[in-house]
């Protein structure tokens, strides 16, 4: 939201007729470390998808398809829970990958 609404513009009582518009708010910049998905190691168990508190594991059909870096907060649960050997998710420092 670039411009703040005036009192004549705010919806009554602040009720939001929006469908999950929090998605427009990017929490990705909270990260200090980030997960990297290594597709060739992925066994498509979907655990990262089910365990991500930020719904930041992207999917396509029935498969994991990557990471939503706009929302991933870098908690590391996905990498920790990844059962593949070698792991399909690895945490790397945010700056290292830039």
């Amino acid at each position: 939201m670039s411009r703040l609404l005036s009192w004549k513009e705010v919806p009554v009582a602040g009720w939001l007729e929006k469908k999950g518009n929090a998605k427009e708010y990017e929490t990705g910049d909270w990260r200090t470390i980030k997960p990297v998905w290594i597709e060739k190691n992925c066994i498509q168990c979907l655990r990262c998808f089910v365990y991500c508190p930020d719904l930041a594991i992207l999917s396509q059909g029935e498969k994991v398809a990557g990471i939503d870096y706009q929302h991933c907060k870098g908690c590391g649960i996905c990498a920790n829970e990844c059962p593949s050997k070698p792991k399909a998710l690895e945490m790397v420092a945010e700056t290292d990958s830039e």
């Binding site: 999950g20 708010y25 930020d54």
Partner: peptide
């Protein structure tokens, strides 16, 4: 997993908080 979740990303719970994970599931 084909259905749109009633809970969206962009919530501001702390990183790693398990509460939104419960909601997600």
């Amino acid at each position: 997993m084909q259905h749109e979740s009633f809970f969206s990303p962009g919530h501001r719970m702390c990183a790693g908080c398990v509460a939104p994970l419960v909601v997600r599931q």
